[in-house]
Write a protein that binds this DNA or RNA. Structure first.
Lengths: 190, 190, 190, 190
DNA sequence: AATGAATGAGATTTCATTCAT
DNA sequence: TATGAATGAAATCTCATTCAT
């Protein structure tokens, strides 16, 4: 059984691409940028991936796999629905702000940017968002609450963190997740 | 009394560009696309705008002007802080989903896409977000509430609507705004 | 008799163009540059000149007229052939370095830049250079001297001043002309 | 032992560009012209040089290297200062009129044409001109002679040859150099 | 005499991709 | 596995020029 050695360049490549896609966007990142970051020539990338679009697809897939696993792992040991939601929100924010570039790419690059794989990318995003469905569905909520909209609000709030979160100053993702959760949960009125 | 006719082509141009930037993104929209949409040759655009970047900046400026005015108009006649927040959220969602392309561009195109004007674009985004600050600051809230984070949650929830809102099926922006507001305001626990 | 009023804009135009051609070169100067310098729109230039090439031709013609007149005026009152040469060299250097842009254009812009008028531009240059022919022919020279080559040396030395002459520091054109002349005339050996 | 074959296309490219810059000027030569001359597509040039400006800089550098080496080689075996000057002038004229296009470019294309590299181009020109300094400084001259001006005269005379030299009719560069030198050296008066 | 708007050709450059080695 | 060289299409932008008003 061959060790993962063969994939080592492959991994470096996809990782460098993820970093660049996450920070500059998909269209603004050229194959040359990626090749430079990983110390190859542009043409060499095509030994590993058939096209730039496929590179993105691979990153999306890796990213979603990671974020869903992370989320599942964070939520699984907990029982109380609110605890589970809070853990989920924290994991979401962490993934979007601190975790590897893979997860950041998912929210930085829009499926529209890659018509060829648009449906796949949308499906991958959905796969991630679906995890929140059960978290919200399990909550004991007042009957008037629109669970669908609640889920969208939570996701929006989390995704938005990508734009304002700063790792240095202030709070850790877990604290932000907790606070978000409490804002949603408790009556905030005076 | 000569009407603003002279500007009519200019307006058509910027509007077509806004529409394309909003739907395809900045990088994916070529000057050729824009020129075709408005019935010019690509080079002719440069009579009106010195560069593609400047075109985007103009759209951002127009867009922020519009959205801030819309928001101000929606909020101004109201007195009760929660009513004002709800009106603001509704206006936000409407601007992002239904209103002219100008406002949609602001949330579709990221400042990173245009390094030359990044700081200006960030400042324009900030100008819009600042409007929510007073709306949130005026709310009568429990002392434990982090108003800063509350504002970010509201903005995130609103911006996210861009990705899931469908004009045909379902609710109008105003209804979504109202529901979002209630989710935030009331205790949702059972 | 109509006053020169009608030509006033025309003159400003040609002068601005000369200034730009002299400092940036012909190809590097756009009609827009010229129009901006004179406070017109690019299209308006075409009321005065049928094309950019014609503008250059007019400048060349004006320039040669001026420089030949200046040279003639400098030389005419003198009788001694060496005095006349010295005066001619001084006038040449002054024209190339200090005088109006018209004369500077002649040596900055090469006929090759304007195929359409190449022969005319060459002829105009020649017209100027021809003036030196008689100056050199009148010199009392040793029989071994190649007057043709002497003229070319003198012209080359003078034209080259365009590249190193500095109006602030150092000598006036007249002093340079005198020194050049003496270098040629006197035995310079020790 | 592999020969420099890898560079052969590169050399062809730079050589073709030099030929075109020398004959048509920098601005009048398009990348398309160059690519056609060397049998590539325009975009392919950018594999070898990052920009047209860099192409010119490379040519300037090669050209100055060649001309300085040629000049040094011509002068080095000689001892008598006047012999050395004569050899230098001959080499200069040959380089400017007959030698490869590289050297002709240096005097055809002005640093002003490439603002980005203006200072470098000026420095390269200066490097060449500096060689004449020692040639002139070593001459046994009458005390009244301005060696600085003498050098400028010699350089001007030589550079000017670019405009009138004809390889077919008349004299070889060496003969012109010799005659120029004698004009400068001997008293030319009758 | 000049403007405002546009044209059409062409400029430089970028970029994903290919392919022989 | 990767390189070196190139392709071909398309991108942004420039520019001399035109023309109705």
């Amino acid at each position: 059984m061959k060790p993962q050695r063969a994939n080592s360049r492959n991994d470096a490549l996809i990782e460098a691409a993820a970093e660049l896609f996450a920070s500059q966007g998909y269209k603004s990142t050229s194959m040359r940028d990626i090749s430079k970051a990983v110390g190859m020539l542009p043409g060499s990338i095509y030994y590993h991936f058939p096209s730039k679009d496929d590179l993105l697809l691979a990153i999306y897939e890796s990213g979603v796999e990671r974020i869903t696993e992370t989320l599942e792992a964070a939520v699984e040991p907990l029982v109380d629905p609110w605890d589970r939601l809070q853990a989920g929100m924290s994991a979401h924010i962490r993934a979007i702000t601190q975790e590897s570039a893979y997860t950041r790419v998912i929210f930085r690059v829009e499926p529209d940017d890659v018509p060829k794989y648009k449906s796949q990318l949308v499906a991958l995003r959905d796969r991630f968002e679906a995890q929140f469905k059960s978290l919200v569905d399990d909550l004991p909520l007042a009957p008037w609450v629109d669970r669908h909209l609640l889920r969208l609000m939570i996701l929006g709030a989390g995704n938005h963190a990508r734009l304002w979160f700063s790792p240095d100053g202030g709070n850790a993702p877990e604290e932000i997740g907790a606070r978000f959760c409490r804002l949603v949960r408790d009556s905030i009125c005076n």
